[in-house]
Design a protein around this nucleic acid. Structure first.
Length: 589
RNA sequence: UACCCCAUGGUGUAAUGGCAGCACAUCAGGUUUUGGUCCUGACGGUCCAGGUUCGAGUCCUGGUGGGGUAGCCA
């Protein structure tokens, strides 16, 4: 059987990394030009530089696909580098989850997994070099004072009173900072650039601060830690990166990136900025996602409703679906918001090609076939995947008592309803034609059971006399069915942009209270008793489902709905309902 | 208010001075043993004003609109 296991990452992949697409995005255009002019001796070397302070989300997937994709496409390399310069926020758990996510997405950093913390000693030496050159100084201003001296967006800053200390004094003070002679916040090392620069990041930025904190990798070796701007460009340089791709908010940092490398006369990669991914009906900020986790709005970073890579994986998304999505989104400098519909299309598109088909009943309605003997069991052949003949067939048991979905029966069928109704004949998928002869109800008038007859001549789903039926519905044999819990997910927020809040409001005001719907007592076909983790199945006519990696147990399977199938009947139903609604107002136009 | 960046259908993107194209979404039809898939069609766009040019979505100038930047976060 063809499956969509994680190792099967190339199923249904599009042009990513293939280098066959006609048009290049602006970054690939730069890379192509640099290759042409021999700017980096024909090398292409990128890096994906996450900070291990949270789980990766679909926006990071875009950056991963870009960095690893460019490297693959141009026969280059891509490093994984952890930007771990803030010991108070970073944890080993995040390092592991990030590695796991990148690998799962189908990318390989080979032996090049680096940590900025590995460069701390070198970084320190470069800082000393800057001091010796008269381009950095130890400043005694407090955090608040530094803020005051910095000026603001419209007013220039003022020089720190410590700006003109001697090289010797700076050297001594910086060494004492390292030795732990000072309290946190007491002193910093700052680059000596220009306090009047229109670019605030050039107003003598802090490059080292004192933090008496234990680092997840270096322990208590250091009590001073380098800042991002100083660390990132030098790390890129050390790793001989050619194109340092980052998001738009770092655009104004680029002059600083260039300044450090120029002053230190180091190998100089090129920083290029692109727009981060935004998706409708969700949030894409680590801070907000962490808040949802901390406050238990969701089940954890890998809650299937989260836009995290772990969440999407647990939900049943495939790596190929995510990669294809990232390809479709493209790379630009325009700050855009992509509709979730595109993500959903990407996963349906991929799963349609590779998901094994099965039958599962979400809202069971008992159906008895009266002309079927009690002990009759017919093993019918069912196609595993109509999109992939090599997936073969399986046996599905048919017997006297079945379950169908409540939604597939209507006692008073509306127009265009093709499913079961009193006196009506439909086809059971891969089974027989059945006709509804009677409806059994409880005291409250609820339909509790359907009585039907079947036509033994229609085995397999076609009638020898050539008669047609309009509807085909899915079903399971009651005796052979496996009980399951099914979890239906909806968007986490009920507005396209949850961050668009009223004065004093929060993004959490927009949380969709119905984002999780747990269905108990669902009936799935016998073969799902051996459902495998990591495979997303199509429950025919319903959607795509996978075993929940955390909650599912062999004796009590739990399925997550990845995404529903497109449902054109739902649309017809909706418009019919609207048409039947009496028009209100009837105001003259 | 300073500096930087950006602007093509509803959404995401392509067109590198020469026919404004693709995908998603929407709508209509066809095929179908999944109201899925697939196929066909329709709808719909270059922010504004000048300029350069035989020719401008593209180049120039000026507007307008949107975004980013004032952590000892990254």
């Amino acid at each position: 059987m063809t499956t969509n296991t994680p190792s099967d990452t190339n199923v249904g992949d599009s042009t990513s990394g293939a280098g066959t697409s006609q048009s290049l995005d602006f970054i690939r255009t730069v890379v192509t030009d640099d290759l042409k002019t021999g700017k980096y001796e024909g090398r292409v070397h990128t890096r994906f530089p996450p900070e291990p302070n949270g789980y990766l989300h679909i926006g990071h997937a875009k950056a991963i696909c870009l960095n690893f994709g460019v490297a693959r496409q141009f026969d280059g390399l891509c490093n994984l580098r952890f930007d771990d310069t803030n010991p108070t926020k970073e944890e080993m758990e995040y390092v592991e989850s990030i590695k796991d996510n990148v690998r799962w997405l189908g990318f390989d950093w080979e032996d090049r997994c680096y940590f900025a913390s590995d460069y701390f000693e070198q970084l320190y030496a470069y800082a000393v070099q800057l001091i010796e050159k008269g381009k950095a100084y130890v400043c005694d201003l407090s955090p608040d004072e530094i803020g005051e001296y910095r000026g603001n967006l419209t007013e220039p800053g003022r020089d720190s009173p410590h700006r003109n200390r001697s090289v010797e004094e700076n050297l001594e003070l910086f060494e004492r900072m390292r030795n732990g002679d000072f309290q946190e916040g007491e002193r910093t090392l700052r680059a000596k650039i220009d306090m009047a620069s229109p670019n605030i990041h050039m107003r003598d930025p802090v490059i080292y601060r004192i933090q008496h904190a234990t680092h997840h990798r270096t322990g208590d070796t250091w009590c001073i830690y380098p800042m991002y701007d100083f660390t990132h460009c030098i790390s890129d340089s050390i790793e001989r990166i050619t194109h340092s791709l980052c998001t738009l908010e770092f655009e104004v940092h680029r002059p600083l990136y260039d300044w450090f490398l120029d002053e230190l006369e180091l190998y100089h990669p090129q920083q290029i900025e692109f727009a981060r991914l935004n998706l409708t009906y969700t949030v894409m900020s680590k801070r907000m996602l962490a808040e949802l986790v901390r406050e238990k709005v969701v089940d954890g970073w890998d809650d299937p409703r989260m836009p995290t890579i772990s969440g999407l994986r647990r939900r049943g998304y495939t790596p190929a679906a995510i990669r294809n999505f990232c390809d479709r989104v493209g790379i630009t400098k325009y700050n855009s918001t992509t509709e979730v519909a595109l993500l959903e299309h990407s996963v349906r598109d991929n799963l349609n090609k590779c998901a094994p088909r099965v039958m599962g009943i979400l809202h069971p309605l008992r159906l008895v076939i009266e002309n079927c003997p009690e002990d009759f069991v017919d093993e019918l052949d069912a196609v595993n995947n109509p999109e992939d003949p090599s997936a073969g067939t399986r046996k599905v048991p048919f017997s006297r008592v079945l379950y169908i979905d409540e939604k597939d029966f209507n006692e008073d069928p509306p127009r265009k309803f093709h499913r079961l109704a009193p006196g009506r004949e439909v086809r059971l998928r891969y089974g027989y034609f059945i006709t509804c002869t009677d409806v059994v109800k409880d005291d409250d008038g609820n339909v509790t059971e359907l009585r039907c007859t079947y036509d033994p001549e229609t085995r397999g789903g076609s009638a020898p006399d050539g008669r047609k039926v309009k509807g085909t519905i899915h079903w399971v044999s009651a005796e052979h069915a496996v009980d399951a819990q099914v979890r239906l997910y909806d968007r986490l927020f009920n507005v396209p942009d949850p961050t668009d809040v009223d004065e004093g409001g929060t993004f959490k005001d927009h949380i969709n209270p119905d984002s999780l719907d747990i269905l108990e007592g669902c009936k799935v076909e016998r073969s799902l008793g051996e459902a495998k983790h990591g495979i997303t199945y199509q429950f025919e006519r319903e959607g795509y489902f996978c075993l929940d990696s955390k909650e599912s147990r062999p004796d009590r399977p739990v399925f997550n709905r990845t995404v529903a199938l497109r449902d054109s009947w739902a649309k017809i139903e909706k418009t019919q309902q609207q048409q039947h609604k009496p028009k209100r107002g009837d105001s003259p136009k």
